[in-house]
Design a protein around this nucleic acid. Structure first.
Lengths: 211, 211
DNA sequence: GACAACATACCAACTGGTCGGTATGTTTTG
DNA sequence: CAAAACATACCGACCAGTTGGTATGTTGTC
C-alpha cells in the first residue's frame, strides 16, 4: 500500500501525524477529526499534511497500518508468551488484555475498531486496513489456541474462529465501556471469556472467578 | 424530555426524521450524516428539522430513545419468552439474536452502539441515551438469567453482569462483521456465548455446536 | 357561532464558519 | 543545485443553524 520509505528524521511530520491520528481518532472518531485538528495536534501545517498523505482517507489507511505495526510489536514482546503450557499462554494473553484496560477510555480502546465502525461502507481501503489489523492480531493467537485445545481433547472448536471471538469480546467490551463510561465491564467480559476457555478445556479458571 | 403531544398526523416530519436517522447513522455514522442528508432522506426541509429538534445533538438523543422504544417492543413480543424453563428462554433469546444477524450489515447492527462509539466524549446527552438503551435491554434478560443460574446451582456469577456480557459479545460481533464485511463472525460469537452458558449450567448445548 | 388571539407545522433563502484539498511559494538536506 | 520537506494563502463546497415568513388548525371570549 505504501512504498514511502520511512528514512526521514524521527521528528518529521509523518510519524507525528500518525501519532496525532491514533490519539484524536480514538477520542472523537474519524469523521469528527478534521485535517486541521490533526495538523494542530501534530504541530505541522496543512501543506505538510498533504505532502505526506494524498488525502484524509490515505492517512486513515496509514494510521491503521501504523496501529497494526505498533500493537503487534507490543504483543510480540509481552510476557504472556513465556509459559510452557499452551493453555497457560492463552490465559496469560487474556490476563494481559485485561491489564491493558485501565485509565481513560480513549487510552485503552482500539483505533481500528473505532475507525472501521464509521467508514466500513464509505471507505473500502480503510475497512480493509482495519480488517487486516484485527484479523492479523487474531492470527497470532491461533497456534496457542490450537495447541491448548488439542492438549485437552477439544475437537469441536475451530481455533481460528475462537481467536476471532476473543477479538469480538474485546471490541464489544470497549463499546460498553464507552457507553457506561467505565472500563470495568470490558475487563469483566474478558473474565467471562477466560472462564469459557477454562470450562472448554476442563480446567479450573486460574486466579479466582467471582463476577 | 418532550412534552410535545403526538397528536399530529402520523406522516409528520418528526417520525420520518427519526427513521431516516436510524437508517443513515447505521450506514455512515453520526458525524458523517449531515442534517441535510437526514432532511433529504426524510423528504422534509431544514426548517422542519429545526422546528422539531433544537440541534443535531437533540436529534441524536431522540433517535437513541426511539431506538430503545422500537427494539424493546420488538423483543417484548418475540417468541423467546415462551419456554417454561428459564435456561431455555436464555438459549431462545440467543437463537433469536443470531437469527436477526442476516442481510446487509447496516440492517442488523445496533444504532446506539454505533453512535456511542463516536460521541461518547463529545456528547454526554447522547452517550447517556445510548447507555440507557443498552443497559435497559440487558436488564430485561436479568430475571431469566438469574432463574437459570439458580436452577443449575451456579452461584459465582452475577446475573446482571452476565446480561451485560451478552450485549458486549453482540456489539463486538457487529464490529467484526463490519471489519470483515461478513455477518458470519457475529453469529459465531453468539454461538460461543451460547456454548458458554451451556457449559456454565452443565447442560448440552441445544442445536449442535460445530464451530 | 363568530371572531380575535394564539399555537403548531412547516418552508425557502440565507449566514458565518469549517471542511478537505490545492497552488505557489520558501527552507532544508544530501 | 536539485529534490525533498515543509509553509502560507487561498478555494469552492458543505456544514449546522437562523431568519422571516405562510398555511392550518385550536382555543378562549362575547
Amino acid at each position: 500500500m505504501s512504498s514511502r520509505a520511512p528514512l526521514s528524521k524521527p521528528t518529521s511530520a509523518r510519524p507525528r501525524l500518525l501519532d496525532a491520528a491514533t490519539r484524536l481518532v480514538r477520542e472523537k472518531g474519524f469523521a469528527a477529526t478534521s485535517v486541521d485538528d490533526l495538523c494542530a495536534d501534530a504541530g505541522v501545517t496543512k501543506g505538510a499534511f498533504f505532502h505526506h498523505f494524498a488525502s484524509k482517507e490515505a492517512l486513515g489507511v496509514a494510521a491503521a497500518d501504523h496501529w497494526a505495526a505498533t500493537t503487534s510489536a507490543l504483543f510480540a514482546k509481552a510476557a504472556y508468551h513465556a509459559p510452557a503450557d499452551p493453555l497457560d499462554r492463552v490465559f496469560a494473553y487474556l490476563d494481559f488484555r485485561a491489564e491493558l484496560i485501565a485509565g481513560d477510555v480513549a487510552e485503552f480502546t482500539c483505533l481500528v475498531g473505532t475507525m472501521v465502525q464509521e467508514v466500513h461502507e464509505s471507505s473500502p481501503a480503510i475497512r480493509a486496513a482495519c480488517d487486516a489489523s484485527i484479523t492479523g492480531h487474531a492470527e497470532t493467537l491461533v497456534a496457542d489456541i490450537a495447541e491448548a485445545l488439542a492438549d485437552h481433547r477439544v475437537e469441536a472448536i475451530n481455533p481460528r474462529s475462537l481467536a476471532l471471538h476473543t477479538q469480538a469480546v474485546l471490541q464489544g467490551g470497549f463499546i460498553l465501556a464507552k457507553a457506561r463510561n467505565d472500563p470495568m465491564i470490558a475487563r469483566q467480559s474478558v473474565a467471562y471469556l477466560k472462564h469459557y476457555v477454562a470450562l472448554l478445556c476442563g480446567v479450573p479458571v486460574p486466579g479466582g472467578e467471582a463476577k
